[in-house]
Write a protein that binds this DNA or RNA. Structure first.
Lengths: 298, 298
DNA sequence: CGCACTAATTGTCCAGGACAAAAGGAGGTT
DNA sequence: AACCTCCTTTTGTCCTGGACAATTAGTGCG
C-alpha cells in the first residue's frame, strides 16, 4: 500500500552513497533501477534502498561493486566478510562477550552497571586499554558482519561515552602539556578521542576537548587561541585512508611551527609518517610520545 | 608561495555548500571563480574559500545569495544579521554574559567551574531551563553574528554536554514511560536532546538515549526492540524546516501505531502538527505531554 | 614466489539544461 | 497598518552523458 519512495538525496543520506555513485551505478550495472515521478526524478522504492544499504556494508568489508550489483538479495545475505578472513577469538574477547550480549538484549541499565563494575575493578587505564578499546573493535566487527543493528551500535557508543566522560571528570585538572583533542570533518567517531583523553588526563596532561569534525582552519585557530603545545587528531579505521596524508600535510602547513601535530587511531596504523607529524597508531605510542615530549622540555 | 588550493570536494566539506551549488553560483554570478588544474578540474584558492565561508554564514542569517555574491569582501564584513533585527537583552541574559565571556577567553576550567556552581545553586530543572537553554541560544546568536569562532562553539557544546551528562547520571533510574530519544540524519545538535533527557529523567521517565542522526528505519526498529512507549525527536532551529513534516510523516507510517511520536526543539516552533505526531516546541509542552500520558495510563 | 606491466574497474568531476519550491513584490481589501 | 492573493524572480536540486585518473586485478617473466 503506502509504497514509500525516496528521492536521490534521501537515499544518499540513508545509504551514504553519493548521488554521483547512485547514478553511475544505474547507468553501468542497471541497479538500482528507481522509478520516475512526474518530473522525471528518481524515486527509489524501499526494497532497493535496503539492498543498497546491504551492498554498502559488504563493500566496506572489501567486496567490490562490480560483483555485488549483479547479485540477488539472497546471495548478498550469504556473503561473509572478506578483508579480515581469519579472526581468532582471544580469551579477552570471550570475556567481553558478556557485555556484547547485554547490548544485544538492549539492556541499557545492565550494560551500564557491568561497565561500571569493570571500571572499578580495572582502574581507568586498564579499563580503557582492556575493555573499551577491544569492545569498540568487537562492536565494529559485529556491525560489519551484520550482527549489530545501527541503533545497537549507537546505544553502545552513547553509553560508553557517558561512562568515559564521567570517569574523566573525576580526575584532577592536568598541569601540562596543553593538548588540543579533536578530529577532522567527516570523522565523527568520538570514542577514540575519549579513550586518549582519559589516558592523557591520567598522566596529568591538560586536555582541551573540542569534540569531532573541526574544519582545518579552525583547528589552527583554536590551537593558537588556546596556546596549545600539541594538537592531537583521531582517525578511525573507517576514515578514508587516502585522504589522511593530505589532510595532515595541509594542517601542518597551517599550524604554527612551534605546535606539534600528533595523529592517532586505527586509521593511522598502515601509514607512512608525513613530515612534521607524529603518528600514534596505538595507545603505547601515545604514552611514549608524551614521555618524550616531557623529557625534551625538562 | 604555498598557495594551497582546494578541489571542489574539499570546498564542499569546509563550507557546507554542495558541489551543485558551487558550480551553479559560478555559472550564474561569476563567483567563485576557481582556477583549473591540468585536468580541467576546479582549484579554489584559500581566499575564495574563506569568502565562501563568510557568505555561507551571512546566508544562514537570512541574506540571499543574489545580493551577497556580487559584493566585495569589505562590504560582506560590514553586513549585520537581518533575520532577528531587534533583539533586546533580558536581565537573565546579562547574567549569562559572564559565562560567555569565559568561553571567549578560552577558559575551559573556569567555564566548567562556573557552570557547576550554577547547577548546584539552581538545581537541575532550573539549570536546564534558565541556564543551558538561554545560553545555547546566546551562543547561537553570537555565532550567527560572527562573534564566536567555530572552535569556541565546539568547546561550549563539549563542556556543557559533559556537565549535563554527569548530572543525568547521578539521577536514579526511571520507572516509565520508556522513552526513546534521538534525532534524524543531518540533525547533529545534541544539547537539545540532553536538556530534554535531564528534565524527563527528573520526572522519572526511563530514557533510552541513542545519540543523534539515526536513520528513520532504525528509529522504528529501535523502538520495537526497546519496547518503547514514546519516540521523541529533537530538531534544532538550524534544521531545514521544510524537511521536518515529511520526515515526521514518514516515521509515523513506519512506527507501530501503539508507539507515540513526539517532536520538539526550536525547529518545531512554527509548525503545523502532522497527524499522529505531538509537537513540543518548548520544555513546558514536553512536561505537559508527559503528564497527559501518565494521566491516560493510570 | 616476487615483481613489473597491462587491462579492467570504479569514483569523481564536468557542462549545461530544466524545473519546482521559496522568497519577494504588487495590488486590493479589511 | 496588517493581511491576503496573485505574479515574478530567485535559487537549490536534479537530470543526461561524457571523460579521466586512481585503484585494483590479472598476466607474464625473471
Amino acid at each position: 500500500m503506502s509504497s514509500l519512495t525516496f528521492n536521490i538525496a534521501a537515499v544518499e543520506r540513508d545509504t551514504g552513497l553519493s548521488k554521483d555513485v547512485l547514478r553511475v551505478w544505474e547507468r553501468r550495472y542497471g541497479f538500482p533501477s528507481p522509478e520516475r515521478d512526474a518530473n522525471g526524478e528518481r524515486c527509489y522504492p524501499t526494497e532497493q534502498v535496503e539492498r543498497l544499504c546491504l551492498i554498502k556494508r559488504l563493500m566496506d568489508q572489501g567486496h567490490r561493486p562490480g560483483k555485488l550489483l549483479g547479485l540477488p538479495v539472497d546471495a548478498l545475505n550469504q556473503l561473509t566478510p572478506r578483508r579480515h578472513a581469519a579472526r581468532e577469538r582471544t580469551p579477552a574477547q570471550a570475556d567481553l562477550a558478556e557485555l556484547l550480549a547485554l547490548l544485544r538484549q538492549h539492556d541499557a541499565v545492565g550494560y551500564q552497571r557491568a561497565l561500571q563494575q569493570r571500571l572499578a575493578r580495572q582502574g581507568l587505564q586498564r579499563f580503557v586499554q582492556d575493555t573499551v578499546a577491544p569492545l569498540t573493535e568487537l562492536v565494529g566487527v559485529a556491525w560489519e558482519e551484520g550482527r549489530f543493528e545501527v541503533f545497537e551500535e549507537h546505544l553502545f557508543t552513547e553509553l560508553t561515552k557517558r561512562l568515559l566522560r564521567q570517569a574523566i571528570s573525576t580526575l584532577p585538572a592536568g598541569r601540562g602539556p596543553r593538548l588540543l583533542l579533536t578530529s577532522v570533518p567527516n570523522e565523527e567517531h568520538v570514542l577514540g578521542l575519549l579513550m586518549v583523553e582519559a589516558l592523557f588526563v591520567l598522566e596529568g596532561v591538560e586536555c582541551i576537548p573540542l569534540g569531532t569534525q573541526m574544519p582545518l582552519h579552525d583547528i589552527a585557530r583554536a590551537a593558537a587561541a588556546h596556546a596549545a603545545d600539541i594538537v592531537a587528531l583521531s582517525f578511525s579505521v573507517a576514515f578514508p585512508p587516502r585522504q589522511i596524508p593530505g589532510l595532515l600535510q595541509q594542517l601542518r602547513q597551517t599550524l604554527p611551527a612551534g605546535i606539534e601535530l600528533w595523529a592517532g587511531g586505527g586509521g593511522t596504523v598502515r601509514l607512512s609518517p608525513p613530515a612534521g607529524v607524529r603518528l600514534l597508531p596505538g595507545f603505547a605510542d601515545a604514552l611514549d610520545a608524551l614521555a618524550e615530549w616531557r623529557a625534551r622540555r625538562s
